[in-house]
Amino acid sequence: MDKTYNNKAWLLVIPVFLLVALSAIIPIMTVVNYSVQDTFGGNKFFWVGTEWFTDVLRSERFHDALGRNLLFSFIILCIEIPLGILIALSMPKKGIWVPICLVLMALPLLIPWNVVGTIWQIFGRADIGLLGHTMAALGIDYNYSSNVFDAWATIIIMDVWHWTSLVVLLCYAGLVSIPEAYYQAARIDGASKWSVFRYIQLPKMQGVLIIAFLLRFMDSFMIYTEPFVLTGGGPGNSTTFLSIDLVKQAIGQFDLGPAAAMSLVYQLIVLLVCYVFFTVMSNVGTDKPEVEE
């Protein structure tokens, strides 16, 4: 049998190869390169092996920041996912309110991160901000630049305000794709509202919820701009998340080696958690039969 070999086919692969190389492989390899070397300036590099990784993994500073990140993402997911589902459920399914609600929902998503940060920074100030001023007038001691709880609360509210819409829109898309017949069938069965939600809407939203979950986890785990604008990582180190710490190390202190090692560990954590989430959530309710009403 004669096979025709045509090497021109490689030409078709080159654009993708170049794109991926430029956008992902080369930058990552640069970081990898930094993470295993030390430099004292003058473009001289010394091989240090895994020393930076060991340092990072043992450093308390890293552990603290990681802990903050995990706590932050956990709180964000706990608020935004249920809230998003709730809002999506209460949105109209037809009529002229649909486009109005959708536009209103989409508005926060259009605002850039640093603008959101600035808005809330000014909003929360006691002297000129509406929120800060009102709180002060009500006798509530609210100050995000000196009180840890206030700082966290402000950043969380900012994120909820900014990103719950995304969860809403995803869930809404999942909800409207459920055929009307499901609801009819449930009515005929005499199923309660809760049963309809638990056994029809929730399973039907599973796909979009996985996406919402992953997107919100990744994004909240990589939070940078909001605390950077609002508190700069303070008070103390209380809002110094991994990303803020990373920037401090890489650009503030110019410790490229440890910063590179840290960013690689950071990325691996994101990948790992996402993988675990995805695997677990995709398998929920598929193999185990539920024996209850």
């Binding site: 017949a181 009819q184 069965d189 056994y199 029809i200 399973p203 309710g285 039969p289 539920e290 009403e293």
Partner: peptide, 26 residues
Amino acid sequence: IAMVYQQFINYPGFTVYENIASPLRV
């Protein structure tokens, strides 16, 4: 009453057994 549709309407997360049992459980 009972109704069956052109689309296949069942409780998506349930097994066959649980689906058939659902009206009885209610």
